[in-house]
Amino acid sequence: MLAKVLITGFAMAALAVAQGRGGGGGGMGGGGGSPEGDLGGSGHAHATPKESKAEQVADRLKLNSEQKVTFNSLIEETQKDAAPVIQQVQKSRNDLANAMLNGKTEAEIAPLKQALSDAQFQMMGVEVKTFQKIVALLKPNQVSRAPEAFELMADIFLQPARGRGGWGR
């Protein structure tokens, strides 16, 4: 029973740490900023902060300043709207870790893996829809760079909830 108490505590702590990040602080999808910040908000920044994912995507697409404004708003809005999906990805991951620590069988773990896969698919859906809107902003000479930009956009909305605000892809 002690083990269960500990594992429950761990799961809650992990989720709390993750949610403490994911919840809106990200802004431009780059938001976490630093591992310290990601771990709960010391507010410390790296000595040499890296470009956020959003900045990388904007650079790759060579967006002009007007496009950047629209692009940034789009990313920020989606970041907020996608909060439930982001939390689901995080939760499913924590559930899987919890089950493994709790010595669950492969049969018991299988649905949790499926849940993680489903959550990631939902996240991908958010990315695809957002990218469709981004592509609509592009001028013909920018479109050729779009597929590579989508590759760069991987997990753009998960970045603050992942242990790598500045731990770029």
Binding site: V5, M12, L15, L39, G41, H44
Partner: peptide, 29 residues
Amino acid sequence: KKLCMAGLLCASLALAQGGYGGGRSKQGA
């Protein structure tokens, strides 16, 4: 009740301590 308490305690610790335990300090972590 104990389970909930343990979970909540840990969760609140994680949130309250804010990573390296200091809120949003400008100090280096």
